[in-house]
Simulated scan of single mutants.
Amino acid sequence: MNVNGLKSYNSAMSQALTQSTRQIFDDVRKSADSVDNKKQQLADQSLKSVQDQNSRAEQRSRLIDTYA
């Protein structure tokens, strides 16, 4: 293989590796964003559940105070 052919091959290989690396990092970032969104949804749902439970407990407490 001549020098120019080797340079061309190395350049093409470097470009392919760079593109592959970029794609992998993009995929990892998208996956991490998806996990973060799911974690946030779970946290929001949990907070709402706790708030609903507290609200029901306060209502029961007021009813108990009313009848006591």
Rank of each mutant, 00 (worst) to 15 (best):
N2E: 10
N2T: 10
N2Y: 04
V3Y: 08
N4Y: 14
N4G: 10
N4T: 15
N4A: 14
N4V: 13
G5P: 00
L6C: 14
K7T: 11
K7D: 03
S8Y: 13
Y9D: 09
Y9R: 04
N10Q: 14
N10R: 12
S11I: 11
S11L: 10
M13E: 15
S14D: 14
Q15D: 13
Q15V: 08
A16P: 01
L17G: 13
L17Q: 13
T18H: 15
T18E: 12
Q19G: 06
Q19E: 11
Q19P: 00
S20N: 13
T21Y: 15
T21F: 15
R22A: 15
R22I: 06
R22C: 05
R22G: 08
R22Y: 15
I24V: 12
I24W: 15
F25C: 02
F25K: 02
F25D: 05
D26F: 09
D27C: 04
D27R: 03
V28H: 07
R29N: 12
R29L: 13
R29I: 08
K30P: 00
S31G: 10
A32C: 12
A32P: 02
D33N: 05
S34W: 04
S34F: 07
D36N: 14
N37W: 06
Q40D: 04
Q40C: 06
Q41M: 09
Q41L: 06
L42V: 08
L42K: 15
A43D: 07
D44R: 05
Q45S: 13
Q45M: 12
S46C: 13
S46Q: 11
L47C: 08
L47K: 15
L47Y: 14
L47I: 08
L47H: 12
V50A: 05
Q51H: 01
Q51R: 04
Q51M: 08
Q51S: 02
Q51F: 01
D52N: 09
D52A: 09
N54F: 01
N54I: 01
S55M: 04
S55Q: 08
S55F: 04
R56T: 08
R56F: 01
R56Y: 00
A57P: 00
A57H: 02
E58I: 03
E58V: 02
E58H: 00
Q59W: 02
R60N: 12
S61T: 06
S61M: 06
L63E: 15
L63K: 04
I64T: 08
I64K: 11
D65I: 00
D65P: 00
D65R: 02
T66W: 07
T66L: 10
Y67N: 03
Y67K: 01
A68G: 03
